[in-house]
């Protein structure tokens, strides 16, 4: 049933990349439990604008949990208190009346804050550009059924391919490691027969770029997988390591 809540917000405000940030308190009153978390922020922003105050900047787009644009560290957890969803899918019924909610941006050296709750995740794109692909130029592909792929292999690849590139894994990791993100792509492409031809080049290039971007190393805390909105499994990190060692043994690059 629909109820309304009164909430205290502590929101990270930061004017731009170079400015110093700080927490600012806001009251969010008469918030319907049917609202999504981002709709709650919309309501707060509308009020701020009416009062002539700069609204809170936050990234969002599809608002249905798939584009990976929304982020937010909510009460110390990426994408808030529920498992396996993004912030845009989080509903206010998961909060209590009178509760204080702390809202922060992703925090990692490789993800600098641009404004308020918005960070720069272009490091992920550069990792993808380094090797996150199968080189199959348009045209001339063989018939889609030419290579049978067992259902299990296709499903395993799909499990890894679900990554939405939101960066929650990095944000929650005490080392700001991007191993889950990179592992997911290496596992997705490496599990499929089409991806085997360039598996060595791919994993070395992606790992090198990952290190260049300033992401930390993995120490198997498993927080990344626990907080991943798509529940990408730790298996992909194991696979990333295997692929990397295998590639190091096979190539001289």
């Amino acid at each position: 049933m629909e109820r309304t809540l009164n909430l205290h917000l502590k929101v990270w405000r930061q004017k731009n990349r170079n400015a110093e940030g700080r927490f600012v308190d806001y009251e969010a009153n008469n918030i319907s439990t049917e609202m999504s978390f981002l709709e709650m922020l919309d309501v707060v922003n509308e009020k701020l604008i009416k009062n002539g105050e700069d609204p809170i900047a936050f990234d969002h787009d599809c608002r249905e949990g798939i584009c990976g644009m929304c982020s937010l560290f909510i009460n110390g957890r990426p994408h808030g208190p529920k498992d396996a969803i993004t912030t845009c899918q989080l509903h206010m019924r998961n909060f209590k009346d009178g509760e204080t909610i702390v809202i922060e941006p992703w925090r990692a050296r490789a993800f600098p804050v641009i404004k308020d709750l918005i960070v720069d995740r272009s490091a992920f794109d550069r990792i993808m550009a380094a090797g996150g692909f199968i080189s199959a130029n348009t045209g001339g592909a063989p018939d889609a059924n030419a290579i049978p792929i067992s259902k299990n292999v296709a499903e395993d690849a799909m499990d890894a391919a679900q990554c939405i590139g939101c960066g929650a894994c990095v944000a929650v990791c005490k080392n700001s490691s991007a191993m889950l993100f990179v592992g997911a792509k290496v596992a997705h492409l490496g599990r499929l027969p089409q991806g085997k031809a360039e598996r060595e080049r791919r994993v070395i290039a992606m790992v090198n770029q990952m290190e260049k971007e300033g992401f930390g190393a993995c120490t198997n805390t498993e927080a990344c997988s626990a907080e991943c909105p798509k529940e990408i499994s730790m298996d992909v990190i194991a696979m990333l390591r295997r692929e990397y060692y295998r590639a190091m043994l096979k190539t001289e690059e």
Partner: peptide
Amino acid sequence: DQCVAQGVPFAREYGGLL
């Protein structure tokens, strides 16, 4: 054909076909 070549993991039957 193009998407399968790129590694798009379409759903498959047990026999391995799409």
